[in-house]
Design a protein around this nucleic acid. Structure first.
Lengths: 230, 230
DNA sequence: CGCCACATTGAAGGCAGTCAAAGGTGGTGG
DNA sequence: CCACCACCTTTGACTGCCTTCAATGTGGCG
Protein backbone atom coordinates (compact mmCIF):
# COMPACT_ATOMS: atom_id res chain seq x y z
CA UNK A 1 0.00 0.00 0.00
CA UNK A 2 1.35 3.39 -0.95
CA UNK A 3 1.51 5.80 1.92
CA UNK A 4 4.24 8.09 0.54
CA UNK A 5 1.90 10.82 -0.40
CA UNK A 6 0.29 10.69 3.00
CA UNK A 7 3.45 10.67 5.09
CA UNK A 8 4.92 13.84 3.66
CA UNK A 9 1.88 15.77 4.78
CA UNK A 10 2.45 14.82 8.41
CA UNK A 11 4.27 17.36 10.54
CA UNK A 12 6.75 14.79 11.77
CA UNK A 13 7.92 14.05 8.24
CA UNK A 14 7.64 17.46 6.65
CA UNK A 15 10.65 18.90 4.89
CA UNK A 16 12.08 15.46 4.02
CA UNK A 17 13.40 14.22 0.68
CA UNK A 18 11.40 11.61 -1.18
CA UNK A 19 14.22 9.14 -0.56
CA UNK A 20 13.98 9.72 3.18
CA UNK A 21 10.23 9.35 3.15
CA UNK A 22 10.70 6.05 1.37
CA UNK A 23 13.14 4.89 4.05
CA UNK A 24 10.70 5.84 6.75
CA UNK A 25 7.87 4.06 5.09
CA UNK A 26 10.05 1.00 4.68
CA UNK A 27 10.40 0.53 8.42
CA UNK A 28 6.77 1.22 9.27
CA UNK A 29 4.08 -1.35 9.82
CA UNK A 30 0.47 -0.63 8.95
CA UNK A 31 -2.06 -1.77 11.56
CA UNK A 32 -5.82 -1.62 11.84
CA UNK A 33 -7.92 -1.49 14.99
CA UNK A 34 -11.66 -1.78 15.33
CA UNK A 35 -13.64 0.66 17.45
CA UNK A 36 -12.85 0.22 21.13
CA UNK A 37 -9.68 -1.82 20.60
CA UNK A 38 -6.87 -1.43 23.12
CA UNK A 39 -3.73 -0.32 21.29
CA UNK A 40 -1.44 -0.45 24.28
CA UNK A 41 -1.68 -0.46 28.05
CA UNK A 42 -0.05 1.64 30.71
CA UNK A 43 3.29 0.18 31.85
CA UNK A 44 3.50 -2.02 28.80
CA UNK A 45 6.99 -2.05 27.30
CA UNK A 46 7.26 0.68 24.65
CA UNK A 47 8.50 -1.02 21.52
CA UNK A 48 7.44 1.70 19.09
CA UNK A 49 5.26 4.68 18.40
CA UNK A 50 2.32 5.45 16.17
CA UNK A 51 1.00 7.78 13.51
CA UNK A 52 -2.74 7.87 12.93
CA UNK A 53 -3.61 7.56 9.23
CA UNK A 54 -7.37 7.42 9.64
CA UNK A 55 -9.69 7.37 12.61
CA UNK A 56 -9.29 8.62 16.18
CA UNK A 57 -7.44 7.34 19.21
CA UNK A 58 -7.76 8.33 22.85
CA UNK A 59 -4.78 8.31 25.18
CA UNK A 60 -5.88 8.16 28.79
CA UNK A 61 -5.10 7.37 32.40
CA UNK A 62 -7.24 5.35 34.80
CA UNK A 63 -7.51 5.87 38.54
CA UNK A 64 -7.54 2.94 40.93
CA UNK A 65 -11.33 3.35 41.19
CA UNK A 66 -11.74 3.34 37.44
CA UNK A 67 -12.19 7.03 36.72
CA UNK A 68 -10.77 7.99 33.36
CA UNK A 69 -8.76 11.09 32.45
CA UNK A 70 -8.25 11.55 28.73
CA UNK A 71 -4.85 13.08 28.02
CA UNK A 72 -5.48 13.65 24.35
CA UNK A 73 -7.57 12.55 21.43
CA UNK A 74 -5.37 11.91 18.43
CA UNK A 75 -6.73 12.46 14.95
CA UNK A 76 -5.49 11.65 11.52
CA UNK A 77 -2.00 12.99 10.85
CA UNK A 78 -0.95 13.15 14.48
CA UNK A 79 1.58 10.99 16.26
CA UNK A 80 1.41 9.51 19.73
CA UNK A 81 3.70 7.72 22.17
CA UNK A 82 6.80 9.29 20.61
CA UNK A 83 8.05 10.34 24.01
CA UNK A 84 7.91 6.78 25.28
CA UNK A 85 10.82 5.95 22.99
CA UNK A 86 13.10 8.45 24.67
CA UNK A 87 12.13 8.50 28.32
CA UNK A 88 11.40 5.45 30.38
CA UNK A 89 10.90 2.12 28.72
CA UNK A 90 7.14 1.73 29.01
CA UNK A 91 4.03 3.59 27.89
CA UNK A 92 2.80 6.00 30.56
CA UNK A 93 -0.90 5.66 29.65
CA UNK A 94 -3.48 3.60 27.80
CA UNK A 95 -4.37 4.04 24.13
CA UNK A 96 -7.65 2.92 22.64
CA UNK A 97 -9.25 3.49 19.25
CA UNK A 98 -12.49 5.48 19.34
CA UNK A 99 -13.37 4.53 15.77
CA UNK A 100 -12.24 2.10 13.15
CA UNK A 101 -8.61 3.22 12.94
CA UNK A 102 -5.59 2.75 10.73
CA UNK A 103 -2.14 3.60 12.06
CA UNK A 104 1.46 3.29 11.05
CA UNK A 105 3.60 1.69 13.70
CA UNK A 106 7.32 2.50 13.94
CA UNK A 107 9.41 -0.03 15.85
CA UNK A 108 11.69 1.75 18.29
CA UNK A 109 15.15 0.56 17.26
CA UNK A 110 14.65 0.99 13.57
CA UNK A 111 13.23 4.44 14.06
CA UNK A 112 16.04 5.48 16.38
CA UNK A 113 18.55 4.47 13.70
CA UNK A 114 16.69 6.58 11.20
CA UNK A 115 16.49 9.63 13.39
CA UNK A 116 20.20 9.51 14.09
CA UNK A 117 20.84 9.75 10.37
CA UNK A 118 18.21 12.42 9.64
CA UNK A 119 18.61 15.59 11.65
CA UNK A 120 15.46 17.00 10.07
CA UNK A 121 13.36 14.31 11.71
CA UNK A 122 14.91 15.26 15.06
CA UNK A 123 13.87 18.83 14.59
CA UNK A 124 10.35 17.81 13.67
CA UNK A 125 10.26 15.55 16.68
CA UNK A 126 11.34 18.42 18.90
CA UNK A 127 8.53 20.54 17.51
CA UNK A 128 6.03 17.75 18.10
CA UNK A 129 7.17 17.15 21.68
CA UNK A 130 7.09 20.87 22.36
CA UNK A 131 3.48 21.07 21.27
CA UNK A 132 2.53 18.16 23.49
CA UNK A 133 4.29 19.89 26.34
CA UNK A 134 2.33 23.07 25.84
CA UNK A 135 -0.88 21.12 25.75
CA UNK A 136 -0.09 19.40 29.02
CA UNK A 137 0.95 22.61 30.74
CA UNK A 138 -2.41 23.97 29.79
CA UNK A 139 -4.19 20.84 31.01
CA UNK A 140 -2.43 21.06 34.36
CA UNK A 141 -3.40 24.70 34.63
CA UNK A 142 -7.03 23.94 33.95
CA UNK A 143 -7.31 20.99 36.29
CA UNK A 144 -5.59 22.79 39.12
CA UNK A 145 -6.78 26.35 38.76
CA UNK A 146 -10.08 26.38 36.86
CA UNK A 147 -13.54 25.07 37.62
CA UNK A 148 -15.64 22.88 35.35
CA UNK A 149 -17.73 25.66 33.80
CA UNK A 150 -14.54 27.52 32.87
CA UNK A 151 -13.02 24.44 31.28
CA UNK A 152 -16.21 23.63 29.41
CA UNK A 153 -16.58 27.18 28.11
CA UNK A 154 -13.02 27.17 26.84
CA UNK A 155 -13.64 23.84 25.14
CA UNK A 156 -16.75 25.14 23.43
CA UNK A 157 -15.02 28.26 22.25
CA UNK A 158 -12.12 26.27 20.83
CA UNK A 159 -14.55 23.88 19.20
CA UNK A 160 -16.54 26.68 17.63
CA UNK A 161 -13.34 28.30 16.39
CA UNK A 162 -12.23 25.23 14.52
CA UNK A 163 -15.46 23.68 13.33
CA UNK A 164 -18.24 26.17 14.02
CA UNK A 165 -20.60 27.57 11.39
CA UNK A 166 -22.25 30.90 11.88
CA UNK A 167 -26.02 30.80 11.46
CA UNK A 168 -28.75 33.27 12.21
CA UNK A 169 -29.17 31.84 15.72
CA UNK A 170 -25.52 31.81 16.67
CA UNK A 171 -22.42 29.70 16.14
CA UNK A 172 -23.39 26.09 15.51
CA UNK A 173 -21.02 23.26 16.13
CA UNK A 174 -21.12 19.56 16.78
CA UNK A 175 -19.39 17.50 19.44
CA UNK A 176 -17.19 14.92 17.79
CA UNK A 177 -17.12 12.69 20.89
CA UNK A 178 -19.73 11.46 23.36
CA UNK A 179 -20.52 13.63 26.34
CA UNK A 180 -19.08 11.13 28.76
CA UNK A 181 -15.83 11.18 26.80
CA UNK A 182 -15.91 14.95 26.85
CA UNK A 183 -16.38 14.88 30.60
CA UNK A 184 -13.38 12.62 30.86
CA UNK A 185 -11.34 15.03 28.76
CA UNK A 186 -12.34 17.96 30.95
CA UNK A 187 -11.35 16.10 34.09
CA UNK A 188 -14.85 15.53 35.40
CA UNK A 189 -17.72 13.04 35.10
CA UNK A 190 -20.75 12.94 32.85
CA UNK A 191 -23.23 13.97 35.57
CA UNK A 192 -21.30 17.14 36.32
CA UNK A 193 -20.89 17.92 32.63
CA UNK A 194 -24.61 17.45 32.11
CA UNK A 195 -25.45 19.83 34.92
CA UNK A 196 -22.93 22.40 33.70
CA UNK A 197 -24.32 22.32 30.17
CA UNK A 198 -27.75 22.78 31.66
CA UNK A 199 -26.68 25.85 33.61
CA UNK A 200 -25.32 27.42 30.42
CA UNK A 201 -28.54 26.51 28.63
CA UNK A 202 -30.79 27.86 31.39
CA UNK A 203 -28.97 31.18 31.19
CA UNK A 204 -29.52 31.35 27.46
CA UNK A 205 -25.82 31.19 26.67
CA UNK A 206 -25.97 28.06 24.55
CA UNK A 207 -28.48 25.63 23.12
CA UNK A 208 -27.98 21.89 23.25
CA UNK A 209 -29.65 19.27 21.09
CA UNK A 210 -27.80 16.01 21.45
CA UNK A 211 -24.34 16.54 20.01
CA UNK A 212 -25.33 19.82 18.35
CA UNK A 213 -24.38 22.94 20.30
CA UNK A 214 -25.39 26.46 19.36
CA UNK A 215 -23.53 29.30 20.98
CA UNK A 216 -25.99 32.15 21.50
CA UNK A 217 -23.84 34.48 23.59
CA UNK A 218 -20.25 34.16 22.56
CA UNK A 219 -19.21 37.12 24.71
CA UNK A 220 -20.60 35.64 27.89
CA UNK A 221 -19.04 32.29 27.13
CA UNK A 222 -15.68 33.95 26.73
CA UNK A 223 -16.09 35.77 30.02
CA UNK A 224 -16.78 32.49 31.76
CA UNK A 225 -13.82 30.83 30.05
CA UNK A 226 -11.59 33.59 31.33
CA UNK A 227 -12.60 33.07 34.91
CA UNK A 228 -15.66 35.22 35.54
CA UNK A 229 -17.90 32.98 37.68
CA UNK A 230 -21.01 31.50 36.15
CA UNK B 1 34.39 32.82 33.56
CA UNK B 2 35.04 29.24 32.58
CA UNK B 3 31.92 27.11 32.46
CA UNK B 4 33.25 24.45 30.07
CA UNK B 5 33.77 21.88 32.73
CA UNK B 6 30.28 22.52 34.04
CA UNK B 7 28.43 22.40 30.74
CA UNK B 8 29.65 18.99 29.70
CA UNK B 9 28.11 17.48 32.82
CA UNK B 10 24.64 18.70 31.89
CA UNK B 11 22.37 16.20 30.17
CA UNK B 12 21.59 18.61 27.36
CA UNK B 13 25.25 18.88 26.42
CA UNK B 14 26.46 15.38 27.13
CA UNK B 15 28.28 13.48 24.42
CA UNK B 16 29.56 16.62 22.76
CA UNK B 17 33.08 17.42 21.57
CA UNK B 18 35.10 20.03 23.45
CA UNK B 19 34.92 22.22 20.38
CA UNK B 20 31.14 22.04 20.37
CA UNK B 21 30.95 22.79 24.05
CA UNK B 22 33.09 25.84 23.42
CA UNK B 23 30.73 26.99 20.67
CA UNK B 24 27.78 26.57 22.97
CA UNK B 25 29.43 28.47 25.73
CA UNK B 26 30.29 31.22 23.30
CA UNK B 27 26.63 32.00 22.62
CA UNK B 28 25.49 31.78 26.21
CA UNK B 29 25.02 34.66 28.59
CA UNK B 30 25.56 34.24 32.30
CA UNK B 31 22.93 35.88 34.48
CA UNK B 32 22.37 36.17 38.21
CA UNK B 33 19.08 36.55 40.05
CA UNK B 34 18.52 37.27 43.70
CA UNK B 35 16.05 35.26 45.74
CA UNK B 36 12.48 35.96 44.59
CA UNK B 37 13.44 37.61 41.30
CA UNK B 38 11.11 37.17 38.36
CA UNK B 39 13.02 35.57 35.50
CA UNK B 40 10.19 35.74 32.99
CA UNK B 41 6.43 36.14 32.91
CA UNK B 42 3.69 34.17 31.27
CA UNK B 43 2.94 35.39 27.74
CA UNK B 44 6.21 37.25 27.58
CA UNK B 45 7.97 36.74 24.24
CA UNK B 46 10.31 33.77 24.45
CA UNK B 47 13.69 34.99 23.31
CA UNK B 48 15.74 32.21 24.79
CA UNK B 49 15.98 29.38 27.29
CA UNK B 50 17.89 28.73 30.48
CA UNK B 51 20.21 26.31 32.21
CA UNK B 52 20.51 26.54 35.97
CA UNK B 53 24.13 26.59 37.11
CA UNK B 54 23.51 27.16 40.79
CA UNK B 55 20.39 27.71 42.84
CA UNK B 56 16.77 26.77 42.28
CA UNK B 57 14.01 28.17 40.08
CA UNK B 58 10.27 27.56 40.20
CA UNK B 59 8.18 27.51 37.05
CA UNK B 60 4.53 28.14 37.84
CA UNK B 61 1.07 29.18 36.70
CA UNK B 62 -1.23 31.64 38.45
CA UNK B 63 -5.02 31.52 38.47
CA UNK B 64 -7.08 34.65 38.04
CA UNK B 65 -7.65 34.67 41.82
CA UNK B 66 -3.94 34.35 42.52
CA UNK B 67 -3.65 30.67 43.35
CA UNK B 68 -0.31 29.24 42.30
CA UNK B 69 0.39 25.88 40.69
CA UNK B 70 4.07 25.01 40.53
CA UNK B 71 4.85 23.08 37.36
CA UNK B 72 8.38 22.21 38.33
CA UNK B 73 11.25 23.25 40.53
CA UNK B 74 14.45 23.35 38.53
CA UNK B 75 17.75 22.61 40.20
CA UNK B 76 21.34 22.94 39.17
CA UNK B 77 22.09 21.18 35.90
CA UNK B 78 18.54 21.28 34.59
CA UNK B 79 17.18 23.32 31.74
CA UNK B 80 13.89 25.16 31.46
CA UNK B 81 11.80 26.92 28.85
CA UNK B 82 13.41 24.89 26.03
CA UNK B 83 9.99 24.06 24.64
CA UNK B 84 9.10 27.72 24.34
CA UNK B 85 11.68 28.00 21.55
CA UNK B 86 9.89 25.46 19.41
CA UNK B 87 6.18 25.86 20.09
CA UNK B 88 4.41 29.14 20.36
CA UNK B 89 6.40 32.31 20.66
CA UNK B 90 5.88 33.15 24.30
CA UNK B 91 6.58 31.55 27.65
CA UNK B 92 3.59 29.53 28.90
CA UNK B 93 4.28 30.19 32.59
CA UNK B 94 6.16 32.29 35.11
CA UNK B 95 9.70 31.60 36.31
CA UNK B 96 11.07 32.89 39.59
CA UNK B 97 14.25 32.17 41.50
CA UNK B 98 13.74 30.55 44.89
CA UNK B 99 17.31 31.22 45.96
CA UNK B 100 20.25 33.27 44.80
CA UNK B 101 20.59 31.75 41.34
CA UNK B 102 23.04 31.70 38.49
CA UNK B 103 21.87 30.63 35.04
CA UNK B 104 23.15 30.46 31.52
CA UNK B 105 20.83 32.08 29.04
CA UNK B 106 20.77 30.92 25.40
CA UNK B 107 19.26 33.38 22.94
CA UNK B 108 16.82 31.65 20.66
CA UNK B 109 18.22 32.33 17.19
CA UNK B 110 21.80 31.61 18.04
CA UNK B 111 20.84 28.38 19.74
CA UNK B 112 18.63 27.28 16.85
CA UNK B 113 21.56 27.75 14.49
CA UNK B 114 23.69 25.63 16.75
CA UNK B 115 21.19 22.84 17.07
CA UNK B 116 20.76 22.65 13.31
CA UNK B 117 24.47 21.98 13.00
CA UNK B 118 24.74 19.57 15.93
CA UNK B 119 22.44 16.58 15.69
CA UNK B 120 23.64 15.35 19.04
CA UNK B 121 22.16 18.39 20.76
CA UNK B 122 18.84 17.62 19.06
CA UNK B 123 18.86 14.13 20.46
CA UNK B 124 19.64 15.41 23.92
CA UNK B 125 16.88 17.97 23.56
CA UNK B 126 14.44 15.22 22.59
CA UNK B 127 15.42 13.28 25.69
CA UNK B 128 14.95 16.35 27.84
CA UNK B 129 11.54 17.18 26.39
CA UNK B 130 10.45 13.57 26.76
CA UNK B 131 11.27 13.65 30.44
CA UNK B 132 9.28 16.82 30.91
CA UNK B 133 6.40 15.22 29.11
CA UNK B 134 6.43 12.22 31.40
CA UNK B 135 6.50 14.46 34.39
CA UNK B 136 3.47 16.41 33.19
CA UNK B 137 1.51 13.29 32.35
CA UNK B 138 2.08 12.19 35.88
CA UNK B 139 1.09 15.61 37.24
CA UNK B 140 -2.15 15.55 35.25
CA UNK B 141 -2.88 12.08 36.56
CA UNK B 142 -2.35 13.14 40.13
CA UNK B 143 -4.38 16.34 39.93
CA UNK B 144 -7.28 14.66 38.20
CA UNK B 145 -7.38 11.22 39.76
CA UNK B 146 -5.70 11.35 43.17
CA UNK B 147 -6.57 13.10 46.42
CA UNK B 148 -4.23 15.26 48.44
CA UNK B 149 -3.15 12.57 50.91
CA UNK B 150 -2.21 10.30 48.02
CA UNK B 151 -0.18 13.02 46.33
CA UNK B 152 1.54 13.96 49.57
CA UNK B 153 2.41 10.35 50.38
CA UNK B 154 3.91 9.84 46.97
CA UNK B 155 5.93 13.02 47.38
CA UNK B 156 7.27 11.89 50.74
CA UNK B 157 8.21 8.48 49.41
CA UNK B 158 10.03 10.00 46.46
CA UNK B 159 11.75 12.47 48.75
CA UNK B 160 12.86 9.73 51.13
CA UNK B 161 14.13 7.65 48.22
CA UNK B 162 16.38 10.38 46.97
CA UNK B 163 17.53 12.13 50.10
CA UNK B 164 16.38 10.05 53.05
CA UNK B 165 18.66 8.65 55.76
CA UNK B 166 17.70 5.57 57.68
CA UNK B 167 17.86 6.05 61.43
CA UNK B 168 16.63 3.95 64.33
CA UNK B 169 13.30 5.78 64.32
CA UNK B 170 12.61 5.53 60.61
CA UNK B 171 13.58 7.24 57.40
CA UNK B 172 14.56 10.83 58.04
CA UNK B 173 14.43 13.45 55.36
CA UNK B 174 14.20 17.18 55.01
CA UNK B 175 11.92 19.30 52.88
CA UNK B 176 13.99 21.47 50.60
CA UNK B 177 11.17 23.97 50.06
CA UNK B 178 8.68 25.73 52.31
CA UNK B 179 5.41 23.98 53.07
CA UNK B 180 3.38 26.55 51.20
CA UNK B 181 5.55 25.96 48.13
CA UNK B 182 5.08 22.23 48.60
CA UNK B 183 1.33 22.75 48.74
CA UNK B 184 1.52 24.69 45.53
CA UNK B 185 3.48 21.88 43.91
CA UNK B 186 0.93 19.31 45.03
CA UNK B 187 -1.91 21.35 43.61
CA UNK B 188 -3.37 22.43 46.94
CA UNK B 189 -2.98 25.20 49.53
CA UNK B 190 -0.96 25.41 52.70
CA UNK B 191 -3.94 24.97 55.04
CA UNK B 192 -4.92 21.71 53.41
CA UNK B 193 -1.34 20.47 53.36
CA UNK B 194 -1.00 21.29 57.04
CA UNK B 195 -4.13 19.33 57.88
CA UNK B 196 -3.05 16.37 55.75
CA UNK B 197 0.37 16.22 57.39
CA UNK B 198 -1.38 16.29 60.74
CA UNK B 199 -3.59 13.35 59.83
CA UNK B 200 -0.52 11.32 58.88
CA UNK B 201 1.14 12.37 62.14
CA UNK B 202 -1.91 11.56 64.27
CA UNK B 203 -1.97 8.06 62.81
CA UNK B 204 1.69 7.54 63.67
CA UNK B 205 2.74 7.22 60.06
CA UNK B 206 5.19 10.12 60.07
CA UNK B 207 6.71 12.64 62.42
CA UNK B 208 7.05 16.29 61.55
CA UNK B 209 9.39 18.84 63.07
CA UNK B 210 9.52 21.89 60.91
CA UNK B 211 11.13 20.84 57.65
CA UNK B 212 12.33 17.53 59.09
CA UNK B 213 10.10 14.55 58.32
CA UNK B 214 10.57 11.08 59.75
CA UNK B 215 8.75 8.24 58.05
CA UNK B 216 7.75 5.77 60.74
CA UNK B 217 5.55 3.44 58.67
CA UNK B 218 6.87 3.26 55.14
CA UNK B 219 4.47 0.44 54.24
CA UNK B 220 1.39 2.39 55.22
CA UNK B 221 2.63 5.47 53.40
CA UNK B 222 3.09 3.39 50.25
CA UNK B 223 -0.42 2.02 50.57
CA UNK B 224 -1.83 5.52 50.79
CA UNK B 225 0.27 6.64 47.84
CA UNK B 226 -1.15 3.80 45.80
CA UNK B 227 -4.71 4.84 46.49
CA UNK B 228 -5.80 3.11 49.67
CA UNK B 229 -7.82 5.80 51.49
CA UNK B 230 -6.33 7.43 54.56
C1' DC C 1 -40.13 -4.25 19.82
C1' DG C 2 -36.84 -4.48 23.32
C1' DC C 3 -32.19 -4.04 24.55
C1' DC C 4 -28.13 -1.33 25.82
C1' DA C 5 -25.25 2.37 26.15
C1' DC C 6 -25.54 7.03 26.87
C1' DA C 7 -27.67 10.95 29.11
C1' DT C 8 -30.23 13.49 32.54
C1' DT C 9 -31.89 14.69 37.03
C1' DG C 10 -32.38 14.56 42.14
C1' DA C 11 -30.75 13.94 46.81
C1' DA C 12 -27.02 13.51 49.86
C1' DG C 13 -22.30 13.61 51.35
C1' DG C 14 -17.30 14.58 51.35
C1' DC C 15 -13.02 16.63 50.14
C1' DA C 16 -10.86 20.53 49.77
C1' DG C 17 -10.96 25.68 49.58
C1' DT C 18 -12.05 30.18 52.01
C1' DC C 19 -11.94 33.20 55.77
C1' DA C 20 -10.17 34.50 60.05
C1' DA C 21 -7.07 34.47 63.82
C1' DA C 22 -3.41 32.96 66.59
C1' DG C 23 1.13 30.97 67.08
C1' DG C 24 5.76 30.26 65.45
C1' DT C 25 10.22 31.26 63.07
C1' DG C 26 14.00 33.36 60.99
C1' DG C 27 16.28 37.34 59.50
C1' DT C 28 17.70 42.12 60.00
C1' DG C 29 19.09 46.14 61.89
C1' DG C 30 19.61 48.86 65.84
C1' DC D 1 22.52 40.57 71.62
C1' DC D 2 18.06 41.41 71.36
C1' DA D 3 13.82 43.20 69.60
C1' DC D 4 11.00 43.69 66.01
C1' DC D 5 8.85 42.52 61.77
C1' DA D 6 7.58 39.90 57.94
C1' DC D 7 6.44 35.64 56.54
C1' DC D 8 5.20 31.00 57.20
C1' DT D 9 2.45 27.63 59.59
C1' DT D 10 -1.30 25.85 62.11
C1' DT D 11 -6.02 25.49 63.64
C1' DG D 12 -11.06 26.23 63.67
C1' DA D 13 -15.47 27.06 61.59
C1' DC D 14 -17.86 27.34 57.47
C1' DT D 15 -18.91 27.02 52.52
C1' DG D 16 -19.26 25.13 48.09
C1' DC D 17 -18.02 22.52 44.13
C1' DC D 18 -18.01 18.33 42.66
C1' DT D 19 -18.73 13.39 43.21
C1' DT D 20 -21.51 9.49 44.54
C1' DC D 21 -25.52 6.87 44.43
C1' DA D 22 -29.78 5.92 42.51
C1' DA D 23 -33.47 6.29 39.37
C1' DT D 24 -35.52 7.63 35.19
C1' DG D 25 -35.30 9.12 30.34
C1' DT D 26 -33.81 8.51 25.50
C1' DG D 27 -32.07 7.19 21.12
C1' DG D 28 -30.00 3.93 18.00
C1' DC D 29 -29.89 -0.68 16.31
C1' DG D 30 -30.45 -5.60 15.83
Amino acid sequence: MNTNKILERFPLFSGLEDREIAEIEAISISKKYHRGALIFSEDEEARGFYVVIAGRVKVYKLSSEGKEQILHIISSGQTFAEAALFAGSSYPAFAESLTETRVLYFPKERFLNLIRKNPQISLNMIASLSHWLRKFVSLVEELSLKDVSTRLSKYLIDLSAQSGRTSERGIECELDISKSQLASQLGTISETLSRTLRKLRDRGIIEVEGKRIIILQRETLEEISSGIPL
